[in-house]
């Protein structure tokens, strides 16, 4: 077990799910990620990440209603669990701590 540590892409996906609120299913997540990050995101990668997140207990999912657009197949909607929320917060905290230690000039010099 990798524990609750998040990878970079995992974190992005988890954030997107949180951001999409009630409309977080695989294709929408994919599209949203593509829009915000500006890089091409493959469905297969998103899928496996979703699968992994669910295994870690960071997200949970349920099947929605069938629609005609998907050939009669139902969507699986994801939502962030409290554990997911905690790990997101933790990740943010780590970053914030580091950010706070960087003096302003040092950044300018780069």
């Amino acid at each position: 077990m990798k524990g609750t540590n998040l990878g970079e892409f995992e974190e992005l996906v988890l954030l997107t799910i949180a951001a999409l609120l009630n409309d977080a299913y695989s294709v929408a997540i994919c599209d949203e990620l593509e829009k915000t990050s500006g890089r091409a995101v493959k469905l297969g990668v998103v899928h496996s990440v979703l699968n992994r997140l669910e295994e870690k207990g960071l997200v949970k999912s349920k099947l929605g209603d069938a629609t005609a657009t998907r050939g009669g197949k139902r969507k699986r909607f994801y939502s962030v669990t409290s554990a997911g929320k905690a790990s997101l917060l933790k990740a943010k905290e780590v970053r914030d701590q580091l950010w706070n230690r960087i003096p302003e000039f040092a950044l300018k010099a780069i």
């Binding site: 294709v27 899928h47 699968n51 657009t69 998907r70 197949k73 139902r74």
Partner: peptide, 15 residues
């Protein structure tokens, strides 16, 4: 348990 969701995604992409 993964099938329906996957089929749906692929169908959506296909369209």
């Amino acid at each position: 348990e993964l099938l329906e969701d996957l089929q749906g995604d692929l169908n959506e992409y296909f369209e």
